[in-house]
Design a protein around this nucleic acid. Structure first.
Length: 478
RNA sequence: CGGGGUGUAGCGCAGUGGUAGCGCGCUGCGUUCGGGACGCAGAAGUCGCGGGUUCAAGUCUCGCCACUCCGACCA
């Protein structure tokens, strides 16, 4: 069984790669760290795009597109920004057979090209807020890449907004963080921690960075998306001023926020098992696979019987049908399990005779024999159940792998050895030096200061013993 | 970018200097079919890339590249 997939226990990294390649989500490309996203993988990305676009538009945003080539000088206008990104830039130095006077950078993110444009578009408070999103590719020359999780080129969306007031920009930052949380939890069924990053972990050029943090099956944390409050940093760097309602001039307030194809990696690593991919029904390119079971003697009769059923299913669900007579039923079962389709419908001679069908859940393998006539409502119920069960299972995993500590003596052993300990929460003083020492000792980083865990009484920092005003969540991360 | 490992048919691998192999998969035909069926016939290779040694290199040697594991780096 599943000989193609390395078990998680044996080698988690290899398991992940096996899933990506065997479920035909992506393939390696000729250039270091780049991947080809195959139709089955791209369909997942399209599901992400469809829902997020709906949510972005409901919150007042419009899509636009800015160029991929950015003049080198633009990057340099915001000091922290250039410092943060320059090590991973790819630069175009030649074009049209000649060396360029000024090199172009392949965008690692679009703040600079967008803010240079916003300068032209914003004069008055009447031009605000400006709420724009773009779907784009970006290039970051990372040292160590991994399919979907960290690739040299990746697809993402980046929202860039401009506001009259600080309060409005902060509100936007948190609103979009919450859009991400809602989408990722409700559709991808991945439970998240949300909250601000520590100052040392924030985005280059931001005042505050907020993130959504997931815990994957190997107990490492993944930053699944970010929303940044940029203050007036980019407005100042690109001289974007507007006339206020009081007829004064002021710099606008900015946000930016993004999620990427990394979400597909998070999806895989959260739900899948040793048989292959598991996809939550709401984003599954195919919710149901119909597998007719027949012998050559009764093939025609079974397929006839399935024709009506298929029509009915297609009226209600996204459906695949696999009636390949070159493959045994067992082979087809295993194949569609690897592809992650949430519900399998088996129909053979027995079912035909009894006016039944067999439903099998991908998430836990349970089989259920149902009346042919009730099949649509039965599947609907099952899909809802699976969606919920996947989230609940992931949430339980996270809770089972979250530890609370009050001293460094408790903390240190958790981060010894190969295995990651999951999320570890502790009272923390907020000092970057204290954070750096912890990281140097253990490789643990602060994932965020979760909003919903700040209700503890004030105490002392678990590491340095000084007064502590935050609960921080530590983990080993991707 | 540093250290280790790997690179031979689509995939997994064998092949210690002398004719390019095996299993799975693939194509065709037939028999099978309720958890990865079987028979027969067939197709498929610049042995990762580039130099060097040699009468002769998949094999020895140097360089490079890719993947992978571990580090450093990382919205």
């Amino acid at each position: 069984m599943s000989e193609k997939i390395t078990p998680r226990e044996e080698n988690f990294s290899q398991w992940y790669i096996d899933i990506v390649l065997n479920a035909q989500l992506a393939d390696y490309a000729p250039v270091k760290g780049c991947m080809v996203i195959r139709p089955r993988g791209y369909a997942l990305w399209e599901a992400v795009q469809t829902e997020l676009n709906r949510m972005f538009k409901e919150t007042g945003h419009s899509n636009a597109y800015f160029p991929m080539l950015i003049p080198d000088s633009f990057l340099r206008k915001e000091a922290e920004h250039v410092e943060g990104f320059s090590p991973e830039l790819a630069v175009v130095t030649h074009a049209g057979g000649e060396e360029l006077e000024e090199p172009y950078v392949l965008r690692p993110t679009s703040e600079t090209i967008i803010w240079s444009t916003y300068k032209k578009w914003i004069q008055s408070y009447r031009d605000l807020p400006l709420l724009i999103n773009q779907w784009a590719n970006v290039i970051r020359w990372e040292k160590r890449t991994r399919l979907f999780l960290r690739t040299t080129e990746f697809l993402w969306q980046e929202g860039h907004t401009a506001h009259e007031t600080e309060a409005e920009a902060v509100e936007e930052t948190l609103k979009m963080l919450n859009v991400y949380k809602t989408f990722v939890e409700d559709y991808l069924a991945i439970p998240l921690l949300t909250g601000p990053k520590s100052q040392s972990e924030k985005f280059a050029g931001a005042i505050d960075t907020y993130s959504i943090e997931a815990l994957l099956q190997d107990k490492k944390a993944l930053q699944a998306g970010t929303s940044h409050f940029l203050g007036q940093n980019f407005a100042k760097a690109f001289d974007v001023k507007y006339q206020t309602r009081e007829k004064t001039l002021d710099y606008v307030w900015a946000t930016s926020w993004g999620v990427s194809t990394r979400l597909i990696g998070a999806l895989i690593m959260t739900h899948s098992d040793d048989k292959g991919l598991i996809v939550p029904p709401k984003v599954a390119p195919q919710e149901v696979v119909l597998i007719p079971i027949f012998k050559s003697s009764n093939k025609e009769a079974v397929l006839d019987y399935c024709a009506d059923l298929e029509k009915e299913l297609r009226g209600a669900f996204r459906v695949a049908v696999d009636a390949d007579d070159k493959q045994s039923p067992g082979w087809r079962f295993a194949e569609w399990e690897m592809r992650g389709v949430p519900v399998r419908v088996e129909v053979g001679p027995r079912d035909m005779e009894n006016k039944k069908a067999v439903l099998v859940r991908r998430d836990n393998g349970e089989k259920k024999v149902v009346d042919r006539n009730a099949i649509v409502s039965e599947i609907k119920e099952l899909l809802d159940d699976i969606q919920k069960a996947l989230f609940d299972r992931a949430l339980k995993f996270r809770e089972d792998n979250t530890t609370s500590v009050s001293s460094y003596d408790e903390f240190l052993p958790l981060f010894e050895g190969e295995k990651a300990p999951g999320f570890v929460e502790a009272m923390w003083c907020g000092d970057p030096e204290c954070e750096a020492e912890i990281k140097a000792d253990t490789k643990a980083t602060i994932r965020c200061l979760p909003f919903d865990r700040q209700n503890r009484v004030a105490g002392t920092c678990f590491h340095c013993g000084r007064e502590a005003g935050h609960v921080a969540v530590f983990a080993k991360s991707y």
